[in-house]
Design a protein around this nucleic acid. Sequence first.
DNA 1: CGGATATTTGACCGATTGGTAAACATTACA
DNA 2: TGTAATGTTTACCAATCGGTCAAATATCCG
Lengths: 216, 216
Amino acid sequence: MAIPRAAKTLRRTRIQEEKEEQILEAALDVFSARGFRGSTIDQIAEVAGMSKPNLLYYFRTKEAMHRALIDRVLYTWLEPLRAFDAEGNPEEEIRSYIRRKLEMARDFPRESRLFANEVLQGAPHIEDELKGPLKELVDEKAEVIRAWAKSGKIAKCDPYHLIFSIWSTTQHYADFDVQVRAVLGQEHAGDGRFEDAARFLEQLFIGGLRPDTSGT
Amino acid sequence: MAIPRAAKTLRRTRIQEEKEEQILEAALDVFSARGFRGSTIDQIAEVAGMSKPNLLYYFRTKEAMHRALIDRVLYTWLEPLRAFDAEGNPEEEIRSYIRRKLEMARDFPRESRLFANEVLQGAPHIEDELKGPLKELVDEKAEVIRAWAKSGKIAKCDPYHLIFSIWSTTQHYADFDVQVRAVLGQEHAGDGRFEDAARFLEQLFIGGLRPDTSGT
DNA sequence: CGGATATTTGACCGATTGGTAAACATTACA
DNA sequence: TGTAATGTTTACCAATCGGTCAAATATCCG
């Protein structure tokens, strides 16, 4: 048959739907844990519970799997930033953005690590997405933040570096999870660490962005 | 022959000194860019400008290279945190810690990425270092920060998450460099981005940690 | 110099890599 | 039910992987 291979048919079968799901789930497991180059098709096949050629029947190459995964995850990943509302209350918008990003780090650590691995190794497969859609979205939201700062609702600050800081601090709990656990030790490495992190980060960002009451 | 292989001799020759240096330099290049599993001995050999067997004459395995590299870099990497002085002025200590970490991200991005790759993929080679020396150092400095908070010199906050935040925000500029550049665009992706980042992060952390003047 | 020691290399090894070919099994549907 | 389309597997491929070995070469030092 081979819709995936030749797209002879237009509709996708139930089996296709299921198997592709299975494969991408397994691929997420493997790619996020070992990076693209460090992963092998055999590993993905084993996790997915199917043979290698079977897997290659649905995705012709290792790259195709990776690409499908990236495409699927990228949109979801930017959802919290997209929800950033220019009309909302600045303090509350920032607070909820932090909370959402932290929830994603907690609930979807593999997705976070997938991107981290990719970007860390030079983003060879997603350079276009970074320079295109991502940059545009960030530019737009940076403008919102700049406007807030200008009108005195928050402190004057560089909106890009603010966004970078929220990204890095929140994703840290997914990407550097083993380090966080190791440092916190068994006593504090339970799920409570996300609540502690949320409390600290809100304090940090809300405090750090409080508009200057004195005239600097 | 073969000090590295059998340690028959006690002194290391000049050639050994030089070649090992050359190899580790090349290994840093490759490992930091592709992760341990994604790297090959051949790649390192090519960057080092020598043959693969020659390289394996100095380091018997790929793992040995990686371990030597980690060991060498780890100490240096924790230097800024070690310099954190309990007797100093809190605000100034935090400010200079941020600045130092940011300088390291700028001047030694490969070292940062080496660790990031390692930790991201579950820290299979440095788990002991994380749970031992790293945790101890962080515990010690966290106590310092806690004391500052208790005496009202800075705001009450979770010292561990404060340290995580400084780590993540500063290392972000090394580890996610391509993303930062992509988002900032060509206009703002020059070296000035580190100064902008420093300015923003100091504002964020100093502001966010300013002791409560009102009684919460 | 000359011999001992240290360094370097080309040829090679078995295992694993990403991927293919074709036979075989299953499913959907007229 | 029959058959064409779809799905799965076994056997295999060339390339690359980490690593070895013996022979060749360079260096050191008396």
